[in-house]
């Protein structure tokens, strides 16, 4: 089992003919993901690599292929439209990889997606992978193996680091979700924790947060009040100076709010195991699984 994506995922790639879109589509197909369609306006009726039909819009892709999940690789100024189009066309899960989407665009996209009952992961995220089942986004397939751990993170390469260490230690994953580093994203920690709690295959959760905002504190509350499964957490940005955006648009300490210290405290108060270093996940998770 897994969360959000699995063997039944039928994926449409928005921006399939672009540099990133084409590269990662090939990787997804190689991984065994069921890529049923691509969308690039103006390239309808062509095919991608002779195998995947391309459509001018998501509506046609859904009608002709039954796609139920979309991944977005379009440039930032077009990303809001791409998300809304996918949701309006009836896609249930939209994963937006694009980095640099203006936050004011997201203030319009977020309620649009919610009101239609769809799920958005991202933007500015590495996507979702359910090892040995499907890969939607850019998380490298070879660093994952199937197993009992759910992984959720605001980061990309830091997630790879931790997942790779788990894998090398023989600890596999049900699903890894990168929720993205932006101030407003479609899916938060709680959405993922709640899904992992319901997923019978997931036995423990690894959570990687970072400075900025209060998502981690709310996640800690959720763990304390609603979760039976063990959670191990990490916060990046202990050494980040206040008021500076640390790469991710959302990774910024505003005034005195959003510091690593307050997040770690919230984790401890909620009984979440705290990984001080990324490598500490292996032993902490192993202990929770036994």
């Amino acid at each position: 089992m897994s969360i959000f994506i699995n063997k039944d995922t039928k994926l449409v790639v928005q921006g399939i003919t672009g540099r990133d879109g084409s590269f990662h589509t090939k990787q997804a197909i190689e991984y065994g993901t069921n890529v049923v369609a691509g969308v690039t306006p103006g390239k309808g009726r062509q095919t991608f690599e002779g195998a995947v039909p391309i459509f001018n819009n998501v509506y046609d892709a859904v009608a002709k292929t039954g796609a139920n999940t979309s991944v977005i690789y379009v440039p930032p100024m077009g990303a809001a439209d791409a998300i809304m189009e996918a949701v309006d066309a009836g896609i249930a899960l939209v994963v937006c990889i694009t980095e640099g989407v203006p936050v004011l665009d997201m203030t319009k996209v977020y309620p649009f997606v919610k009101e239609r009952g769809a799920r958005l992961v991202g933007p500015n995220c590495p996507g979702v992978i359910s090892p040995a089942q499907a890969k939607v986004g850019i998380i490298p397939g070879r660093i994952c193996i199937p197993g009992p751990v759910g992984v959720v993170s605001r980061s990309g390469t830091l997630t790879y680091e931790v997942v790779y260490q788990l894998t090398r230690a023989g600890i596999g994953q049900t699903t890894c979700v990168g929720i993205g580093g932006d101030p407003i994203n479609g899916t938060n920690f709680i959405d993922c924790l709640s899904a992992f709690e319901k997923d019978p295959s997931t036995k423990a959760v690894a959570l990687m947060g970072e400075i900025g905002g209060t998502d981690e504190q709310e996640a800690a509350d959720f763990v304390k009040n609603h979760m039976t499964k063990p959670v191990v957490g990490f916060i990046a940005g202990q050494t980040a100076p206040p008021g500076r955006r640390m790469g991710h648009a959302g990774a910024i300490i505003s005034g005195s709010a959003g510091t690593a210290a307050e997040k770690v405290e919230a984790f401890k108060a909620a009984g979440i195991g705290v990984a001080v270093r990324p490598m500490d996940f292996v032993e902490l998770i192993r202990a929770k699984l036994h």
Partner: peptide
């Protein structure tokens, strides 16, 4: 990567 960059700085500390 931003998250790994922050985690690296933290580990240096």
């Amino acid at each position: 990567g931003a998250g790994l960059a922050m985690a690296t700085m933290d580990l240096v500390k």
